[in-house]
């Protein structure tokens, strides 16, 4: 919301700046309050990240001191994590899993969402409700059936085992269906007359028109899978199959958790999410604005 309102207020602020030079009128209370709330929100958001980076620069004995600036900053932890071959494996595992899941979600969620949105067929509403209702089932309830399934099919301790529950999501399907509502049917009919088949209409006409939604979904899915912990922890056994979050949790020994190493790994693993976000954020902001307009 703040992103949407700020640009609108910019001209007024600058007009004030021009005309208020002599009187120095204070900014109005609403503005000040808004900034304070935003500032507090910003602090809340950034604090864990700052603390994570700070901890990653500390020696083990200093980890439990709550000071932001390490007394003796060190990059020893980074050297250790990066030199430990396992971290690379986990990193690659995470990348592979997050990328494949993201691509799969973009493809299948929008395919199903499009079908539910643009085609009239008997039972369409029931299918939609059935998909939506799965949103109400918590992951904690699902991991046991998933595990039984994985065991039965021999998927334990494999990429497929880690990925299969998230290759399509009800949320993504719902999101895409809602966005396809904003694509006028005339485009699709025009394409039908031009002679495209239904798959081509979806791929060549409808998909490019919902890019903002795809970008948003890409970020959601990538982040979700990159940070996923519970299921990868359950389904993997061998250290080589761990993802970054699972692997990091195992740093340290039975008695001691090596927080400085965990934080170092976490700091490194935020880099891909930052990249994904930077690539797609232009679209996602536009997507939010667009979603607002379409109601």
């Amino acid at each position: 919301m703040s992103l949407a309102t700020n640009p609108g207020q910019l001209p007024r602020a600058s007009v004030n700046a021009v005309f208020a030079t002599q009187t120095k009128k204070p900014a109005n209370m609403g503005q000040i309050l808004r900034w304070m709330v935003l500032f507090l929100g910003g602090i809340l958001m950034i604090a864990p990240i700052v603390y994570m980076i700070s901890t990653s620069l500390k020696w083990p004995h200093e980890v439990y001191n709550v000071n932001l600036i390490p007394e003796e900053p060190t990059i020893e932890n980074y050297t250790y994590v990066l030199e430990d071959g396992r971290f690379y494996l986990w990193f690659v595992n995470s990348i592979i899993i997050a990328l494949i899941t993201t691509v799969s979600n973009l493809f299948f969620d929008s395919l199903v969402g499009y079908t539910l949105c643009k085609f009239r067929f008997p039972g369409r509403y029931i299918v939609f409700i059935a998909i939506l209702s799965t949103l109400m089932i918590p992951t904690e309830m699902l991991v046991i059936p998933w595990y039984t399934m994985s065991q039965a099919f021999g998927w334990l301790d494999s990429y497929w085992g880690i990925m299969f529950p998230g290759l399509m999501t009800a949320f993504g399907t719902f999101l895409m269906k809602q966005f396809f509502e904003s694509v006028p049917n005339d485009f699709l009919e025009a394409a039908r007359i031009d002679g495209l088949n239904e798959f081509q209409i979806w791929w060549k006409i409808a998909m490019p028109l919902v890019k903002p939604a795809l970008a948003a979904l890409a970020i959601f899915v990538f982040l979700g899978n990159w940070t996923a912990f519970l299921w990868p922890l359950i389904v993997t056994n061998s250290v080589e199959m761990y993802t970054v979050p699972v692997g990091l949790s195992g740093f340290g020994d039975e008695v001691d958790v090596a927080w400085e190493l965990i934080m170092t790994g976490a700091a490194i693993s935020t880099i891909p999410t930052l990249i994904v976000f930077l690539i797609f954020q232009r679209f996602i902001i536009r997507g939010v604005v667009m979603a607002g307009l379409k109601g």
Partner: peptide, 19 residues
């Protein structure tokens, strides 16, 4: 199918592909 009817159509809101 529409494509096999040897017709072409112009729509009220143009329906030209924006991308």
């Amino acid at each position: 199918e529409p494509k096999d009817r040897d017709i072409a159509m112009v729509f009220q809101n143009y329906a030209i592909y924006p991308h």
